[in-house]
Every structure is written in structure tokens, then in C-alpha cells.
């Protein structure tokens, strides 16, 4: 078992109270598994991803346990996490591309980054160059400025850098959402190749784009308003989802060929609750067409079929 998360709860502190962005997350990722993480904007995907690697100053660890390869990760302690970051767990943050310093050459940035993590350059430089070649980049990218590279090229550099030390778990946060479809496909397939080549053991791929996840993920975890809604093999999430939210999310995806003028698609009516004071019971109940009295109680996230877990009273029935 590569990653085991048990009851992980992480809030943001704000003047108006706690933002309950990740509340009691419990799931596992097997060796070699690519898990997609999906859900509405603001539901806590990035928060969950970041909390496994580096909590930012406003995040507050509340509860829960994280185990990687049988060892507990001290996620609540920024300093104690240092030896694990990059080497065992690594993250490509959302908007990593726009954060690249435009005045620094790619090679200079890579050197600075490695130095800041106390990684001796001479030990990894050959491997770095080898991997740049594997992902199809010419060696002279190191001499270029970010602006001289396309989005797909930059994303490849970032991917190679963040997985350079063969971490057990790589978290990729929206790495394909800014790319055009053909580059998106190429980058997505590279993620799979990284796993197949053993550069990373398992992966969490965060994106709201379920059709990309369907292409590359083994399993998909769907979050709703800070809670886990469903986790199952990708095929099952797409073709036989158990949670009403997952079902509605899947059916709001436009297929190529659907047009506004002919068929107006409908999203999920209503909107997600505020995470400052989320409703008690099932957080989806105000928007759920199946809601009934029992939904005032919180449904547990439990197995509803082999390999398929969901948090919904109707799914367990």
C-alpha cells in the first residue's frame, strides 16, 4: 500500500471562522495506481493535494493520519516534512507554469531549485538531461527563457524536475488544464509513462476534467464541498457511478457535437455550500434530487460494491 490517508482534516483560518476545506478524508492509493481527483471548483482538491506535501501558512491541520509506504508522514510539521518532500512525495502546484520566473533561464532555475533542496547537482545532472530527452525536449531548453517555450514544453520541464528523485507519490495539480487538446494528450500520456518507467510509484492527478481522467487514471476520487463523495475505478465512475453528485457531474459534460443553439445543457442546479458553515448531514442534500429525511445525518464513506466507495445513504441501500 503506497498511500494511506485516514480522517485527514485540514481547515483554513479566516477572520470569519474556519473554512472546512478537507474534512475527514479517508482513502488509499496502491502501488502503481494513478488516482484522479475531481470535483467542483473550490471543493478542496488543491487543499487535499497540498496538505500531503506542504501546508501553507494559513492551513491548519486538525486531525488525521497519513502513511506513505508504511511510514507515517508528519504532515502537520513543516520542518519534519523536509526530508520527505521531493524525495518521497512531490507536487506540481496548480499554476506552476505562470509562476516560472521570466528573467531566469530554465537551467538556472533548475539549478536554484535543486540547491534549495540540498540536492547535490553533480549527482543528478546527467539523469536530468537524460529525462529531458525522454520527454522529447532538446538539451538547449536549459539555455532558454520560459517565454521562449510553449506551455507543453514548460510543463514537461516541471514534470521532469518534480519527479527527478523518483518519489513514491507525485501530485499533479491541474497540469493539463491550460494546454490545447493535442498537447494535453501528450502531457497526459507522459504522466502514465512516468509511472510505467518507475519515475514515480503512484500519482494523484488533480483536474476537474473527468474526460482527461477517464483516459489516464486507474481510479477516480470525487470530492464535494470538502468531503469525499466517491472513489472507484475510472470505468465505474464514468459508467456506473453510485453517488448522485457523480452522476450529475458526468451528465453535465458536453460531448463533441452538442451545441447551445440546439440543446442547452444543464449544470447541477444550485451551488455548493459555503465551507465556512457547511450544512450538517450530507453536504449535497440541498441539491440532491434523491434527498430524504435520513440525509440530515452524515452518510459514511463506505464500500458500496467491491472497489467502489461512496458517501450516500441511497448508494448503500
Amino acid at each position: 500500500m503506497s498511500l494511506k490517508v485516514d480522517g485527514l482534516t485540514v481547515y483554513y483560518q479566516s477572520l470569519r471562522g474556519d473554512v472546512k476545506a478537507v474534512d475527514g478524508a479517508t482513502f488509499e492509493i496502491a502501488d502503481g495506481e494513478i488516482m484522479g481527483l475531481a470535483g467542483e471548483s473550490g471543493c478542496g482538491k488543491s487543499t487535499l493535494g497540498k496538505s500531503l506535501v506542504r501546508m501553507d501558512a494559513r492551513m491548519r491541520y486538525v486531525d488525521g493520519r497519513v502513511e506513505l509506504d508504511g511510514k507515517e508522514l508528519p504532515v502537520w510539521d513543516d520542518r519534519k516534512m523536509n526530508p520527505y518532500r521531493f524525495k518521497h512525495v512531490s507536487i506540481i502546484p496548480q499554476y506552476a507554469l505562470s509562476a516560472l520566473n521570466p528573467t531566469r533561464k530554465i537551467g538556472t532555475m533548475a539549478t536554484e531549485l535543486l540547491a534549495s533542496r540540498d540536492i547535490p547537482l553533480n549527482g543528478v545532472v546527467d539523469e536530468f538531461k537524460r529525462r529531458l530527452k525522454i520527454v522529447g525536449l532538446p538539451e538547449d531548453v536549459l539555455e532558454r527563457f520560459p517565454i521562449e517555450l510553449s506551455g507543453g514544453m514548460k510543463q514537461r520541464v516541471v514534470m521532469v524536475l518534480s519527479s527527478l528523485l523518483d518519489p513514491s507519490l507525485l501530485i499533479a495539480d491541474e497540469v493539463t488544464s491550460a494546454l490545447d487538446v493535442s498537447t494535453q494528450r501528450a502531457v497526459s500520456e507522459l504522466l502514465v509513462e512516468f509511472r510505467d518507467r518507475g519515475f514515480v510509484k503512484s500519482m494523484i492527478v488533480i483536474t476537474h476534467d473527468l474526460s482527461v481522467l477517464y483516459q489516464i487514471a486507474d481510479t477516480i476520487l470525487v470530492m464535494y464541498a470538502g468531503k469525499l463523495a466517491e472513489k472507484a475505478p475510472a470505468e465505474t465512475v464514468v459508467h456506473a457511478p453510485a453517488h448522485p453528485y457523480t452522476r450529475m457531474l458526468i451528465s453535465s459534460l458536453p460531448e463533441v457535437g452538442v451545441r447551445y443553439a440546439e440543446k442547452r445543457l444543464i449544470g447541477i442546479p444550485g451551488r455548493p455550500p459555503s465551507l465556512l458553515e457547511p450544512p450538517t448531514g450530507c453536504r449535497f442534500k440541498t441539491r440532491c434530487p434523491l434527498a430524504f429525511e435520513k440525509c440530515a445525518e452524515e452518510p459514511p464513506f463506505v464500500e458500496v460494491a467491491p472497489g467502489q466507495a461512496a458517501a450516500c445513504w441511497k448508494a448503500t441501500a
Partner: peptide, 27 residues
Amino acid sequence: SVPQLHTKWQDVDVTIGAPPAPGNGGG
């Protein structure tokens, strides 16, 4: 290259005949 919910890229390639050329991301 459009990711579709019910069809995998590999299957699209088979129907189209040849894998699409990668975007300029690689070159």
C-alpha cells in the same frame, strides 16, 4: 485528440487510422 468520456484515445486512433502528431509541446 479531444478527450472523450466513452472513448479512449487509443480507440480514436484506430478509427482515424494513425496516431495524431503530438502538439508542438515536444519539439
